[in-house]
Amino acid sequence: MTDPWFSLRLSLAVATLATLVVGVLGTAAGYFLAKSRFWGKDFLDALFTLPLVLPPTVVGFYLLGLLGKRGWFGQVLFAWTGWEILFTFQAAVIAATVMAMPLMVKTARAAIESVDPAYERAAYTLGKGRWRTFFQVTLPLAWKGIAAGLVLSFARALGEFGATLMVAGNIPGKTQTMPLAIYQTTQTGEDTTALALVAILTVTSLAVLVATNRLAQGRPW
């Protein structure tokens, strides 16, 4: 039985956790892509972008292969802990993370590349190493773009459907996130509940877009 309030709470939890992971990993990847030059960089960039263009079910299929009991990672995890990650809350977080990653990497990379390297050089000559320079100079100067990336990632994670369905399933009261609940209630004719869920997601997405635009323009709240 679909519980709309559970689905809302679950979606918010999944999206928040996914955004945190994506924020750290995506910013690190964006920095790496912006700063280093190496053979195969274009390929790596394309790999990070892939979930943006692939059908979510295809991403879900790969994740199944990775996380399943006989999968590359799932196997190791099962052998060590006896725990199966598929069809759990954690699987939903992983699906949302992978799907939101391209937006974060792209925006973080662009934001970091837009910071004049002269500031970083100045920080080096003033005795700061790479880490301090990143946290004291690069990050504050790229902050607007990175924040915009976080907001977009949150929105993407909140709306994730296909990959989540593949790896986390559609278990009411366990892994049924908002988009899955909308699908379910529409199928079973619970129109009022479906409408309420749709309204909540629409308003949230709208708020996210307004917030992103404001951030990009550097306007106060």
């Binding site: 002269a118 500031y119 050089r121 920080a123 080096y124 000559t125 005795g127 100067l141």
Partner: peptide, 19 residues
């Protein structure tokens, strides 16, 4: 590494941290 040379550097456009 530059951060261990203890040299002062004044850049052509100064590169003062805008934030």
């Amino acid at each position: 590494a530059p951060q261990h040379r203890r040299l002062g550097f004044v850049f052509q456009n100064y590169a003062l941290f805008p934030h």
